[in-house]
């Protein structure tokens, strides 16, 4: 039997149906759009944060100055040791006690420098950690965004890592005045042949009998013809991790072997989707920044 369809009211139903689809689709589109917008803003905040933390590392050129002090200290010890040998070789034995005293002073000075170098690394870690934790504690509920079934909170720092940037040398230069030492540095691959700059993150030991001393030279962008590299964001893949400063939003004991020159910040933005908050996920953002380079050229 043929069914007779009722045509009256069909337009009204169709239009209401279309209207519903239209509104739902539009709401969905706006929600997704806003979500992407918030994600971009959170990434920007992470970039700014990484930049801020990185700029605290080399405040007052402290890392650059420490590298220079390490380089000068090793030259002083190397030179003092050579003077003792000269005294013995040139029959100037009466000057040997003075030469030995100078060497001892140089070694004592270096011991002091080593302690200060460790203090510097601890101080950098402390300042960066305090600054990062202060950011998390300053977050308020104002940044919460809610639209439809989407709810996002402000991005929090979850993890902070200290490290250096690949292929960045040290700012300190191996002085060619001390020929023996500069040749030794090249042999041991302590310095670059082309520009004489020390390689980064090395223990630039000197020849025996002073090989027991360690001269830790950190990575830092050198000053090139009076131009200092400012703090800047870098790609994450050039970052080399040294130690973790903050993990799971909590400060960790941290003491890297060398002074860092970069920081990597991992942020998370808690996001909830669904009318009853059924789906919960943390969006993560990673941002890396390098500190400013050496200010002074020696």
């Amino acid at each position: 039997m043929r069914t007779i369809r009722k045509s009256s009211g069909s337009m009204l139903v169709l239009i209401v149906f279309l209207l519903g689809i239209f509104v739902v689709f539009a709401l969905g589109a706006f929600t997704v759009n806003n979500f992407l917008f918030l994600r971009t803003r959170a990434q920007d905040r992470a970039d700014n944060l990484a930049l801020l933390l990185a700029s605290k590392i080399n405040t007052g050129d402290r890392v650059g100055q420490m590298n220079e002090l390490q380089a000068r200290s090793r030259e002083l010890i190397f030179n003092s040791r050579e003077r003792i040998a000269d005294c013995h070789g040139e029959e100037l034995d009466m000057l040997s006690p003075i030469a030995e005293q100078l060497l001892n002073e140089a070694r004592e000075g270096h011991a002091l420098l080593e302690r200060e170098s460790n203090n510097l690394v601890s101080q950098i870690c402390k300042e960066v950690k305090e600054s990062a934790l202060a950011h998390n504690s300053a977050l308020s509920d104002l940044g919460i965004f809610k639209m439809g079934g989407l709810l996002t909170e402000q991005a929090r720092i979850e993890r902070v890592e200290l490290g250096s940037i690949k292929d960045i040398p040290s700012n300190a230069k191996s002085d060619t005045v001390f020929e023996g030492l500069s040749e030794f540095d090249l042999q041991q691959n302590h310095s670059h042949k082309t520009n004489g700059l020390y390689r980064a993150n090395i223990d630039a030991k000197i020849p025996p009998p002073d090989g027991d001393l360690s001269f830790k030279i950190s990575a830092l962008a050198p000053n090139v013809r009076g131009t200092c590299s400012p703090a800047h964001n870098v790609n994450a893949h050039v970052f080399t991790r040294m130690d973790t400063l903050i993990d799971n939003e909590e400060g960790q004991p941290c003491h890297p072997e060398f002074a860092p020159c970069a920081v990597q910040v991992h942020c998370k933005m808690p996001t909830t989707l669904g009318i009853k908050g059924d789906y919960r996920a943390d969006l993560t953002f990673v941002s890396t920044a390098a500190t400013n380079g050496a200010i002074k050229t020696e």
Partner: peptide, 28 residues
Amino acid sequence: AQSLLETVMGISFLVPIFLLLVDFTLVF
């Protein structure tokens, strides 16, 4: 006439909503 009336009334609802959506898109 009933169908025509329904269509006209429907469109008179749909058009402002469509324009409002255009406005919101513009705002975003």
